[in-house]
Design a protein around this nucleic acid. Structure first.
Lengths: 186, 186
DNA sequence: AAGATGTGATACAAGCATGTCTCAGAAACA
DNA sequence: TGTTTCTGAGACATGCTTGTATCACATCTT
């Protein structure tokens, strides 16, 4: 990778991304000051890393998508129930990333690159469910588009429970698997 | 009811609420100008009806909760699967109302009255699921708190599908029923 | 150690949304 | 019809956020 920057630069960058996701998730209309404070850096430094608030939000969204995709990469070959279970196990602990995308979608949906990547990820999901239906793993009386929406929303429900303190991440993952597979499997 | 106002006043009020919900749902950071435009009224008039943006948002949330509760009222005596099916049928066409609450929760979660009403509605939901579990309608290996979260999220998934144009409201309702009851029923 | 690079603090200009006020005109009421 | 009530348009002050620029200082590199 390109190591063209100082250690400090990389450290700030990381702090910004982490704090940015957390802060905007908690308060979607947080300003640059609030984000800088949360990251433990000066506002001026934040602007040195990102030209504008819009650029920052965009970068955060892209990062979340990249990380999500990277986490799913190893399980690309799986399909049907096995794929669903693997994806849930991988995604449940990544609360922030996926949730950032779902909750703050309206902030980035206009961006072309973001939209392109999202479309690709969605298509992969649809394929996965389509395959599962064809293989007899999933019920045939529900369209793949519904399964994809249902899957995302069920993951969100799991995170809700974890955030509310009503369940651990592992417990929530179990609930998600049980309810989703019972709701779509056959 | 108290008819202490002009027809115009009532008409503006209604337009503001309708446009407010729709506009803020589309763009959570919409300003008073944008909302007034959407309602087809002047910004000054908007301020005559609501002292501040915060008061407006609060009113919108309370309205959504009232309408939701009023719609559910007639089915209060139902329980188990029948209750779930009835609630889905009633709520699916009310996309905006419930979705406003879910999507813009962070804007109103600080308000005491809003929180009180929300807590009551959630408790009623929990009771409903608890009863269903006791009656053998729902699986006993899933906590009622999960079922409540799962139920809300599945409704959201249905609305997502409708909004994306992938299904009609009736179709989505059928998907929601099928997947939710299969995912929690036994 | 010396130079390069990144940082925090601060000041600053500009834009935007908020909330207030006024006034002329339109619509409702009785 | 005459009076009351509501409205739209616009001016206005204010505060907040954005984005830029500067300077002294700290940290990294070599």
């Amino acid at each position: 990778m390109s190591q063209k920057h100082d250690r400090r630069f990389a450290r700030s960058q990381q702090a910004i991304i982490e704090a940015g996701i957390a802060t905007l998730l908690r308060n979607p209309s947080a300003g640059m000051s609030e984000i800088a404070d949360a990251a433990g850096i000066g506002r001026a430094t934040l602007y040195r890393h990102f030209d504008s608030r819009e650029a920052l939000v965009r970068k955060l969204a892209l990062t979340c998508m990249e990380e999500t995709q990277a986490a799913l990469q190893p399980h690309e070959d799986l399909s049907g129930r096995a794929a669903v279970e693997a994806i849930i196990d991988v995604l449940m602990p990544m609360t922030d990333r996926f949730r950032f995308l779902v909750s703050l979608w309206s902030l980035v949906e206009g961006d072309a690159q973001v939209a392109r990547i999202e479309a690709r990820m969605r298509d992969e999901m649809l394929d996965m469910f389509q395959q599962g239906i064809a293989a007899g793993d999933f019920r045939a009386d529900l369209p793949a588009s519904w399964m994809a929406a249902f899957f995302d929303s069920t993951l969100m429900a799991g995170w809700t429970l974890v955030e509310a303190g009503s369940a651990t991440s592992a417990e929530a993952a179990a609930f998600v698997k049980r309810s989703f597979l019972a709701g779509c499997g056959k």
